[in-house]
Write a protein that binds this DNA or RNA. Structure first.
Lengths: 337, 337
DNA sequence: CGACCTGGTGTTATCGCTAACATCAGCGGC
DNA sequence: GCCGCTGATGTTAGCGATAACACCAGGTCG
């Protein structure tokens, strides 16, 4: 029949240190006007009692929680998962907890519901990973006054936004293929309403433009290896296709398999580049040349932007992009003679 | 200079409905002793004001939060990521928010620190994804009284635990290979101190035992495609190897690549089975036969176990396993003549 | 028909903090 | 030597809920 006596509160610490609870509060919040000796006594008492401030009480009186809400799609895709993980780490370092609101599909209602759940929790701010236009639309419903940062969202909206520089990554990938002597580069794209996909299409076009190369039609797919495979089946049948830039690594995987089935060797007959640098990319057959986004940097920028809003209310320069890097492996070579 | 007037509180609702705030509280908490008519009036007022209860205030007075803390490794591996995602979804449905404490390495100190962070937040309960022995050791430091459930942890400990039935999955995978006529089955294992890996080794051995097959040495690796590749390079050189069961799909990917490089065709010369059923597995070359764990079921059991502890303090039957299923694709065939 | 229960409601205290104001010593300046 | 400042501390009043108890009408029962 053991009975856990309740956790120590501020008054317990105060009694032990021989001061008032308000002084304890001041020590905890680093107020300047506390004598050094008093501070030490209080800190000793805190340690002795293993006192930990009650966040609920603090949140109640200040009206602010140390919680950040994230809305993300319920997916185990590499990109989103990595980003989330990086963000949680960055937030933890800044003393914030992260509450994740998963959403099955990125439509207006689901996102609105997830945002509502977070507002119920009285989060200090909300991060929405809004990679497509329906998600971005839903943000119109979020009441002003809630600090909000969008990741991978719509660059044409005025909302605070952090994103990987998709166009730049795609530009470099395409240029890399061109530099190997390919006449032009085909592109297997992700869904058109995804900003990531749109940005990559844009960068690809820009790179072809700079050398005046012919612009083949975009091969549309979703993000899955399955759709990459179907796209690849088509491309494999066309002998003039010698270079393919895929909007992500899974698409590239599907293309590789389709090429392999048709007997077109990579990189001897066809060169392929992906995007994301998933950990397995180095073990595809052949190892995949791809573009690696810097998720940690995105997470950092996002947190920074959010906290600026929380404290200042507003932010200068509310849109930030992070440059990705090209990782060269063995899926790119010169075109066949 | 707009000024957001503060959120409505319980007293505002009470005033509008012409009752006391306590009656509002009773409506919110479904107390029986409220007249139907009163209840309706209060609910109307809640709706009109878009009132949402302040969780901090509730947590303060009840001493319980609606937050569940999860400790997980900072990894974007498919298994953990899927599990986490499934758990967040299950928790959200039950009205709980999930705060994730990422940890870089699963050692005692990091886990202890993450648990402490969660205790600071006054979480209602903690879930630790503790797939290896150092993680499991760290749990000894968690003070009793905090509801705690381990996922993928040490089956030999008395702590509440939910896990995929690794041994069963491995048993079926191995039996499947044997049924195709292979004399024996080789095994590329994950790190020995991971319970997942250990369980799979156990199931593999058991299956070979039932038919009296020869037991080859375990080929030890970590979870990466890189180490699978190295293991595969060795196995590819040994003509007597005709069937390989890999402890996860990434290892299998590495093995496939090694086989391909050595000119050993799958499944014609060698059969390969993985574990996890990552989404890309169907697009490996060839499509991979593998074992699929049911993460949603694991998440459900975990949440159930945790909530039982939160309310009852104790639980009967504190260990639960979830059966995986074998997914048959094209990487398995009969041994070469 | 008055004592007693019981369902519906209001009143008050309380959770553990922070903000705002009150207090009080010591100090310099005229 | 008194005034008023300033730095260190204490006191008081909430924040917005729930818990515990008080209260009051109406029905039951001896």
């Amino acid at each position: 029949m053991e009975k856990t006596s309740r956790d120590p509160a501020m008054t317990d610490v105060a009694r032990l240190a021989g001061v008032s609870h308000q002084t304890v509060s001041r020590v905890l919040n680093n107020h300047p006007n506390v004598r050094e000796q008093t501070r030490l006594r209080v800190q000793a008492a805190i340690k002795e009692l293993d006192y930990r401030p009650n966040r609920a009480a603090r949140a109640l009186v200040t009206g602010k929680s140390q919680l950040i809400g994230v809305v993300a799609q319920n997916s185990s895709l590499y990109g989103p998962a990595s980003l989330l993980s990086a963000f949680e780490e960055a937030a933890a370092q800044a003393g914030f907890a992260v509450s994740v609101g998963r959403v099955k599909v990125l439509d207006r209602d689901s996102i609105a519901a997830a945002v509502e759940r977070h507002r119920d929790q009285r989060v200090a701010g909300i991060v929405v990973i809004a990679p497509n236009s329906s998600a971005a639309d839903a943000l119109a419903d979020v009441p002003a006054g809630v600090p909000l940062v969008t990741v991978d969202g719509d660059p044409d909206r005025p909302t605070p936004l952090v994103t990987v520089d998709q166009a730049l990554g795609a530009f470099e990938a395409t240029k890399h293929l061109i530099a190997y002597g390919h006449e032009t580069v085909w592109h297997v794209s992700g869904p058109a309403d995804w900003f990531d996909a749109a940005g990559r299409v844009e960068g690809w076009k820009a790179a072809l433009d700079t050398v005046g190369a012919e612009l083949p039609p975009v091969v549309a797919a979703d993000w899955s290896a399955a759709s990459g495979f179907r796209a690849g089946q088509m491309l494999a049948r066309m002998p003039e296709v010698t270079a393919v830039f895929c909007s992500n690594d899974h698409l590239a995987l599907g293309v590789l398999r389709a090429m392999s089935e048709r007997g077109r060797r990579v990189p001897h007959d066809v060169s392929v580049v992906g995007f994301d640098d998933v950990p397995e990319a180095a073990y595809f057959i052949p190892p995949l040349t791809t573009v690696r986004p810097d998720f940690a940097a995105v997470a950092h920028e996002t947190l920074g932007l959010l906290l600026e809003q929380v404290s200042d209310g507003e932010t200068a320069q509310p849109q930030r992009t992070v440059a990705p890097t090209l990782v060269k492996r063995e899926s790119v070579g010169p075109p066949p003679k």
